[in-house]
Amino acid sequence: MVHTGAVEWAGYDDVDAREATRANRAWWDANAEEYLSEHGEFLGPADFRWCPEGLREADARLLGEVAGRRVLEVGAGAAQCSRWLVGEGAHVLAMDVSAGMLARARTLDAATGVRVPLVQADARALPLDDACVDVAFTAFGAIPFLPDADRVHAEVARVLRPGGRWVFAVVHPVRWAFPDDPTEEGLTATRSYFDRTPYVEVDAEGEPGYAEFHRTIGDHVREVVAAGLVLDDVVEPEWSPDNEHVWGGWGPVRGRYLPGTAIFRAHAPG
């Protein structure tokens, strides 16, 4: 069912996994243009920012050497990161489940003159052969919006070549204990960090229109390891002093005190 109703209630509640997955796909289709209108300037049409803190791959180099390598972006959205990687000499494939976001990606391809191969696919069922990718990554794609993100890690592990790298950025788990407020009001914990109840928005009929799923640091680590991958690092970007951009619950006031993003870097054995 495609969710079209206005948000009647938002908060933390259990949600049917299949309904939540369908709702999130429909939400991104419907809100792709609005999302890019709000955040497109910060992201840039062909730039690679890992997170609202402002960390760029040009500085962090979390993917390692990409020139000449096959790189997969999972949950690519409008493929801004992939477009930047093309300029670095990578052979990139960008995937997203949302037709709306991929349509925006084609618009940015035309505007920048940088074309990225795009595929519409569920991150839990990548339409790729085994061991065909050197590097896979996602910057806030797929994982937060799926109740079974362990399947994403398993699929990435399947398509990575031995020694291939998997890097993914998510909302820092500690943030779930605090209100989604970028001001001083967001500095006081109001929920248990260990409460994994999803955040959900529903309409007047009680149908979900959007959902996000919380995992602790330990949950993320266990899912990566269970997929047969080796965890190399967890990066917690600090807020850039010159970054005044406010993005939902992210902003310079709270960013000085609390981490907003966690980036996990892992590799396939071999």
Rank of each mutant, 00 (worst) to 15 (best):
Y193T: 08
R151V: 05
E155C: 05
R124G: 00
W176I: 08
A105F: 06
V114N: 15
P127C: 06
H172I: 02
Y199Q: 15
G87N: 09
T216K: 09
A139S: 08
R115Y: 09
V133Y: 11
P173R: 15
E155A: 06
A105I: 02
A136H: 05
Y210H: 11
S192R: 15
G87L: 12
F178A: 10
E185S: 11
R222N: 08
M95P: 13
Y193A: 13
G89W: 03
S98P: 05
L160K: 13
V114W: 06
W176G: 04
C132K: 00
G206C: 01
R106I: 01
H220E: 04
F178D: 09
A177G: 11
L118I: 02
H153D: 15
P173N: 14
L126D: 15
S192N: 13
R161G: 08
T183P: 01
P198S: 12
L102Q: 01
V171M: 14
V171R: 09
Q120W: 02
H91Q: 10
T190E: 04
A177Q: 14
R222E: 13
A157F: 04
V156Q: 01
A94P: 09
R215D: 14
C132W: 09
D195W: 04
M95T: 15
R158E: 12
A149C: 10
G163W: 09
P147S: 06
P182N: 03
D96W: 05
E184C: 01
R158N: 02
V221G: 14
R215H: 12
P117Y: 06
H214A: 14
H172V: 14
R124D: 03
R175W: 02
D109C: 05
G164T: 08
W176Q: 04
D122T: 07
A189H: 07
A123I: 02
S98V: 02
A177P: 14
V200M: 06
D134P: 06
Y210V: 06
C132N: 13
G209C: 00
V167K: 08
G163I: 05
A125Y: 08
E207I: 07
P179L: 00
R115M: 09
T112D: 00
A99Q: 13
L128T: 03
E212T: 07
F178P: 12
F194Y: 15
P182Y: 12
H172N: 07
A121C: 10
A125E: 15
V167H: 11
V159N: 00
Q120A: 12
V114M: 05
R191D: 04
I143K: 03
T197G: 05
V119Q: 03
R222T: 13
L126W: 11
A131V: 02
T188K: 10
P117W: 02
P173H: 13
A90V: 14
D195T: 14
V221E: 08
